[in-house]
Design a protein around this nucleic acid. Structure first.
Lengths: 211, 211
DNA sequence: GTATCCTAAATTGGCGCCAATTTTGGATAC
DNA sequence: GTATCCAAAATTGGCGCCAATTTAGGATAC
């Protein structure tokens, strides 16, 4: 029996589960770092019940996106310079490590798909919300990582990407940076086409460090 | 560190979080892969309430140690060859990446501490339970990783180590392998003392691949 | 006028009940 | 004898209530 049910893992799910809704609002910058997440407020905001709110908060606390203070509540994690730096370092280690495999596995069809996703990102820069831009970026990078052939790694990177919750908002404020990201996406694809692993590694590193 | 090892059936399980208790039982092999975790059973087994059980199961499902099938329950994840291989690959990438930093940062005091932890592991091989052995191993590797200077990375590796839950039991059955691990621990410390990064990388890779 | 204490409102968090769904066992029909 | 169907038991999971703790505000003493 094909009884495969997509539980609320870390996949990109539609805004059904409360956990994802809160997560999206944190990533979109609606719920700012330091904000206390009162259960009664979330209950009303997302039109859901108390237990659902509590489960969502517990899950986000496990993911270390919010902090739980016993008998006082949950609040959005404040950006931590050290942590952000360390997460970036981890991402650089992981994402540069599979550059070789990505280049080996990339077919012409893959490159075409990547171009499409990169262009979709460009489109969202002009006509899209912050969230749509974020998701387009995620889709591009996800497709790129899948070429690495390690699905666990794709999930892991997607997961630790969220650990610098405040990053997307605070770093993507300027249009210049977003357009820089856009250019780098295309340069990455060029590097894959050219089969230049070392150049791609440099691009990935730079891309992560700037956001 | 005195580790609280809970025997099943015992009554007073005060203080400890239920999630950790179930986690330890999965890691220790008491709860075998595929087992259905009925809420009523866990409730009685760990002397806790229904909501506590459900929270623990939800958390373990988030960590992907158990799988949740709606309206049917939770069961311990079956070992997946592909996943285990991919997790090993990730660990190799991360742990070999910080070998250089580890060697740079390792003081004489650190090396002495590592020797002590390695010897504690040796001791547990002879006079210790499976869980104590597992924890001694964890303590050694944790101390090693901390020398890398990236605390997020330490937590991350500790976390993904648990993703191959069935590994410790199934792979550590033979004494030969455990003693091989023991030898490798000491060889790693030797490599650190000698400042030989490349040799240490090879050891780490081999250590992860064999379990 | 300010600090402290005490009371009241608000919030968190534990707990049990009940409905919805699934599983199991047995009875019946072919 | 076997397959199918139905009913009873068991299990999951949603929901709301109430106690414990914290916070805020006001009254009182100095």
């Amino acid at each position: 029996m094909a009884d495969v049910v997509m539980d609320s893992g870390q996949g990109t799910s539609a805004g059904r589960d409360v956990t994802d809704l809160v997560l999206q609002d944190i990533l979109a910058g609606v719920l700012l770092p330091g904000t206390w997440l009162k259960q009664i407020d979330l209950e009303r905001r997302y039109n859901c019940t108390r237990p659902e709110v509590r489960r969502a908060l517990d899950r986000l606390a496990q993911k270390r996106l919010v902090e739980h203070v016993p008998n006082r509540g949950y609040h959005v994690y404040e950006p931590d310079g050290r942590r952000a730096r360390e997460v970036s370092e981890i991402r650089i280690i992981l994402e540069t490590a599979i550059v070789g495999t990505i280049i080996q596995n990339a077919s012409l069809a893959d490159i075409a798909s990547l171009r499409g996703l990169a262009e979709q990102f460009d489109f969202m820069v002009l006509n899209g919300t912050m969230l749509e831009l974020y998701e387009a970026n995620l889709a591009f990078h996800r497709h790129l990582l899948i070429l690495g052939g390690n699905l666990e790694l794709v999930d892991l990177i997607t997961e630790i990407r969220q650990r610098t919750s405040s990053a997307p908002v605070s770093q993507w404020r300027t249009r210049a940076r977003v357009e820089q990201s856009s250019r780098e996406h295309h340069l990455m694809i060029d590097a894959i086409e050219a089969g230049d692993a070392e150049y791609l590694k440099g691009l990935v590193r730079q891309h992560i460090l700037q956001g």
